[in-house]
Amino acid sequence: MQDISAPLASPASAPPPRSRSAGLTLFALLIAFLLGAALVAWLSARGYLAMLGPQPAATTAADTTPAAPPPPDAARLAAIGTVEGRLAMLEDRISRVDFQTHAAAGNAGRAEGLLIAFAARRMIDRGEPLGHVSDQLRLRFMNAQPRAVQTVIDFAANPVTIDGLAARLEALSPELTVTQSDESLWDRARHEVTSLFVVRRDSGALASPAARIDRARVMLTARRIDNAIGEVERLPGADAADTWIADARRFEAVQKALDLLETTAMLEPARLQDGEGQAVDQPSPLAPTAPMGDPTEAAAE
């Protein structure tokens, strides 16, 4: 009995070989699982996984047929409408730009004409020759105000200034304050009647020749030429100032002509011309406009 049990106990004490092989198997399975998961993730990221799956059913010819195009007439009408709309917008914009350009050109022509009139007035007041300004006056204003233009040009050929009129009046003062000896009876009677009428209206001091000459000087300085001429004509020796009176009237006439030219440059509706000789038919922004419903418009209609 002892011999049999002794050999049976030795194999039980040796290490079991199956435990190591089982661990290696589990480790290999884990590595394979991880590799498979990584492969699936890579295929999904690349899009290959969808290709490996079931494919959708093939589409029929009816499904792949594109939508029918619109009728040719409708497409043509839509295109024409779009083109016509764009052309209408372009024409409207061009017409507005043309109107604005025409208005700007007209206003520029009026402004230039007004500057020419101002330059002519300045030269006239200084007694200087007009030079090229006379050509501009003829070009711009001759069609609208020929008499005023000719008056300014004629006066510039023989100019007279306010200072010159005042100096000449001062030089004529001794002759204007005395009665001329060669006056006729009618002239003396007329002066006497005029003096009597003035004495009744004014005091003796205001009606004296010296006072009249002083007032004439003041009127000249204020450019009230009519009043200055009136004072000189009431003096006893007014006949000695005939040339002075004629020059003063010429100066007054040229001032009125210049006023007319300036007004023409601002308000003339049709006959004013620009620097190229073209008519300035653009309405002036300074021209008065009748309000709606004005009686004059109703009468004109």
Score class of each variant (00 low, 15 high):
179 T>L: 07
181 S>F: 07
185 L>V: 10
176 L>F: 01
185 L>Y: 09
183 E>H: 08
193 V>M: 11
165 L>W: 05
163 D>F: 04
190 R>D: 00
185 L>K: 12
181 S>V: 07
189 A>I: 06
165 L>F: 10
191 H>A: 12
160 V>E: 14
168 R>A: 02
174 P>I: 02
162 I>A: 13
170 E>C: 02
187 D>R: 04
172 L>F: 06
162 I>F: 06
171 A>I: 04
159 P>A: 11
196 L>I: 14
165 L>G: 03
188 R>M: 09
169 L>Y: 03
184 S>M: 01
160 V>P: 02
187 D>C: 04
163 D>Q: 12
183 E>R: 15
194 T>S: 14
170 E>F: 06
170 E>D: 15
196 L>N: 10
184 S>I: 00
186 W>C: 02
169 L>E: 06
185 L>I: 09
164 G>S: 14
165 L>P: 03
193 V>D: 11
195 S>N: 09
179 T>Q: 01
162 I>P: 03
159 P>G: 08
171 A>C: 04
175 E>G: 08
186 W>E: 14
178 V>P: 03
191 H>F: 07
191 H>N: 10
169 L>S: 11
189 A>Q: 03
172 L>D: 12
183 E>K: 13
182 D>R: 10
195 S>M: 14
195 S>F: 10
160 V>M: 12
194 T>G: 12
182 D>W: 12
182 D>Y: 11
181 S>R: 13
175 E>V: 04
163 D>E: 15
167 A>C: 05
177 T>V: 11
176 L>I: 05
161 T>S: 12
160 V>T: 15
196 L>D: 08
177 T>M: 11
183 E>S: 13
174 P>H: 01
181 S>D: 12
161 T>P: 05
189 A>H: 06
169 L>W: 02
164 G>N: 13
191 H>G: 07
187 D>V: 09
173 S>C: 05
196 L>T: 10
184 S>A: 08
193 V>Q: 14
172 L>E: 10
166 A>M: 13
175 E>A: 02
172 L>G: 10
178 V>K: 15
190 R>E: 00
191 H>Q: 14
188 R>F: 08
195 S>H: 14
185 L>D: 15
172 L>Y: 04
165 L>E: 09
177 T>P: 01
161 T>G: 05
175 E>Q: 15
180 Q>R: 15
171 A>M: 11
194 T>M: 11
